[in-house]
């Protein structure tokens, strides 16, 4: 599946016009503020800015491609793009089939959001289907209600289908902040996953080394922290 029709493919770095292959970066484009399609129809958000900077430092020519979340790993392995930057947490299961660079986003907390502070978190809790959050809710003993998109899982709380939604805290933060007090965080945040890294094919060791080195320089000079602060606010966890 060359998801290129799907893809807002654009040349990200024009300066380094060397005679080399283009590195294609795959993302989902539906998970603000990590990655989303902005109103101009282009990939935008934290990962867009981070990815462009990453390619610049690693002196690579990069191109963005969007792909459905469900098939994002099979398409990487099929060679339809070379790296995944899609807010993908480093987990054991994923690490068994693909490789990750060091994390470029600290281990993220997941949190519950609900309409009132005293809800029973063992009731019906909504989550996006086949995410680590959905699995967590199922294990917690609550009744999990799974929706196809994160959007719908939030809508389910608003219309009373679920008492709370369980999702990435950074995803929920903007929604809660803009709900005029309608939604609020409840319960304790939960640490899931080992931070977010760039997903790569296991055979692509060369690219992994280049990316790892570039991420390290961004961590060292503080530019990564500045980027996180810009997109996630001053309170976000930083390196």
């Amino acid at each position: 599946m060359k998801n290129l029709l799907l893809a807002t493919a654009l040349i990200a770095v024009s300066g380094a016009a060397q005679a080399q292959d283009v590195v294609r970066l795959g993302t989902e484009g539906a998970y603000p503020p990590f990655n989303f399609i902005n109103d101009a129809g282009e990939v935008a958000g934290f990962e867009r800015e981070f990815g462009d900077e990453l390619c610049k430092r690693a002196e690579l020519t990069c191109e963005w491609v969007t792909n459905d979340w469900d098939s994002i790993i099979p398409n990487l392995q099929s060679g339809n793009y070379d790296a995944i930057l899609a807010g993908m947490s480093i987990t054991e299961e994923r690490d068994a089939v693909i490789d990750f660079t060091q994390n470029y986003f600290p281990p993220a907390a997941s949190a519950y959001a609900a309409m009132s502070a005293d809800v029973d978190l063992t009731g019906v809790v909504s989550a996006q289907v086949s995410t680590i959050q959905a699995a967590y809710v199922a294990e917690s003993g609550a009744t999990v209600l799974e929706f196809a998109t994160p959007d719908e899982s939030v809508a389910a709380v608003r219309n009373g289908e679920a008492v709370a939604v369980f999702a990435d805290q950074d995803y929920l933060a903007a929604i809660v902040a803009e709900s005029n007090g309608e939604l609020m965080f409840v319960g304790e945040p939960v640490q899931l996953g080992g931070g977010i890294g760039v997903g790569l094919r296991e055979s692509d060791t060369e690219l992994k080394e280049k990316f790892n080195a570039a991420i390290q320089t961004m961590k060292d000079d503080g530019s990564l922290n500045a980027m996180i602060e810009k997109h996630f606010g001053a309170e976000a966890t930083k390196f």
């Binding site: 099979p74 392995q77 089939v97």
Partner: peptide, 26 residues
């Protein structure tokens, strides 16, 4: 693309998607 799955009780495609997602092999 229609209704949410309750308590992870779904149809054949729901479970197939679950496995495809966990094993990364469609």
């Amino acid at each position: 693309s229609g209704f949410p799955a309750f308590r992870q009780m779904g149809d054949a495609l729901y479970y197939a998607k679950y496995f495809a997602d966990k094993t990364f092999n469609p």
